[in-house]
Amino acid sequence: MRICVTASGNSLDAPVEPRFGRCPYFIFVDSETMAFEAVPNMAMNAMGGAGIQAAQLIASKGAKVLITGNVGPNAFQALVAAGIRIITGAYGTVREVVEKFKRGELRETGSPTVGGHYGRGAGMGRGWRRRYPPPY
């Protein structure tokens, strides 16, 4: 089975990156052979919808499980629509979390773990948000 882990580096020994849509790398691991592919996150600095784009990538790569730190509401919806199982709150290296998953030590989440961003840093207060030029 193909598992996707968000990571801050491009190897099995890289630490898990907690930010789903903004992680530097997606590591796709074959749970049987531990063969892996590291895909850099092109949407890391996207203005908005990084989580949705990430979900799109993971779905297109045929992963069935996502292991990460936090998932926002939009990405959560998209992952669920794609039938991807979502595991949040993971920490350690990519290799460690995949092993843990195989031993059944990780639990799936049933809801988003962080609030929405609306792509432009809402929640950081009005002053901050207003400095972002909307691309409209």
Partner: peptide, 10 residues
């Protein structure tokens, strides 16, 4: 703007 997500049947 990543406003669309396309799954395999959704």
């Amino acid at each position: 703007y990543n406003a669309i997500f396309v799954g395999s049947n959704k």
